[in-house]
């Protein structure tokens, strides 16, 4: 890391080479200091506060807070919603990125824009559109009511809103990678006689598996933590349609701080587990190329790719 302002000894022209970092030590320390203060104030302290508040009342208060049937039902609902929304978005995200990344077709850009829509739209709107569609006075409301199907202010509405909000995560991770990888490997596989599905399972999917996993993890984190859109369609029925984030707000508003922070600590723990999984995926995906070419098809594909670089 030593930085020298002197001309390089092997530099015959004798011109002064600019060092990579020009800032003085003071400026550098100041910048680092600012970053650290920022991280501590905005990221570390709030997280620490959640756990500090959660254990303040002792382990008994924490357990009482979580043992409440309403809290337990909120935890179960959150997990259930994530378990439905994430696999669906995995399938959709993969299909969409395959279509967009590997093919050129009319409406491709439109599809790309549509996938980004949930990122651009405020979660409140995301919730309200479902009220407009499936609410009692919405487009499909009267029909749903005559069929006795409840979507808004019930679990299906929460699932729909969550799927909408977490729509882009998988696709957005996988599309750039597929575009970058191009179609040469798939073409090679087909030339060698592979069927469409074989090509997909043996070539396309292994090439994007880390990006896919990464997208799934982000998707899951958002699915469990989503507040805005879910709040609009939930109806806030205690023990029935409250997800964890909604239940935490309700407990807080009931002055039940011990229980609020107990549930908040569980939600934060789930998020930390997700982040740990993300870090693990990043580490494995970096070390993966060294271990990956165990399968013959990958060696072939590496060969076809090498000359291009």
């Amino acid at each position: 890391m030593a930085i020298s302002a002197h001309p390089h000894p092997h530099n015959p022209s004798g011109r002064v080479l600019r060092p990579a970092i020009q800032e003085s030590a003071l400026v550098r320390r100041l910048l680092i200091g600012v970053s650290v203060v920022f991280l501590v104030t905005f990221l570390f302290l709030p997280l620490a506060a959640i756990f500090a508040e959660a254990i303040k009342g002792g382990s008994k208060a924490w357990i009482i807070g979580l043992a409440d049937p309403a809290a337990w039902s909120a935890i179960k609902l959150t997990l259930a919603v994530a378990l439905i929304a994430v696999p669906l978005n995995l399938v959709f995200g993969l299909a969409a990125s395959w279509a967009i990344g590997k093919f050129d077709f009319i409406g491709r850009n439109l599809l790309l824009t549509l996938i980004d829509l949930p990122f651009a739209v405020s979660p409140v709107i995301s919730g309200l559109v479902y009220v407009l569609l499936y609410g009692a006075h919405g487009w499909f409301g009267p029909w749903l009511q005559s069929e006795n199907i409840q979507i808004i202010f019930a679990v299906p509405g929460i699932v729909l809103a969550t799927i909408f909000v977490t729509f882009p995560f998988v696709a957005r991770e996988v599309i750039p990678l597929m575009q970058e990888q191009g179609t040469e490997e798939e073409e090679a596989a087909i030339t060698l006689g592979a069927h469409g599905w074989q090509t997909f399972w043996r070539v396309t999917l292994p090439n994007v598996k880390w990006a896919l996993l990464y997208g799934v993890i982000l998707c899951n984190a958002r699915a469990m933590g989503e507040f805005g859109a879910v709040s609009v369609v939930s109806g806030h029925i205690r023990g029935k349609t409250n997800t964890m984030p909604l239940h935490i707000e309700i407990l807080y508003n009931e002055y039940n701080f011990a229980a609020a922070f107990a549930v908040a600590s569980v939600l934060a723990l789930l998020a930390l587990v997700t982040l740990a999984a993300k870090a693990a995926v990043e580490r494995y995906s970096l070390s993966a190329p060294a271990t990956a070419p165990a399968e013959p098809i990958l060696i072939v594909s590496n060969l076809t790719e090498e000359p291009a670089r």
Binding site: V131, H137, G138, Q145, F153, G235, H236, R238, I250
Partner: peptide, 20 residues
């Protein structure tokens, strides 16, 4: 008995929109 609480006007709106 299940409970739902919120601002009174907002709650009325939800019932009209289909909160059962």
């Amino acid at each position: 008995i299940q409970q739902s609480h919120g601002g009174s006007g907002k709650q009325a709106r939800s019932v009209i929109d289909g909160l059962e």
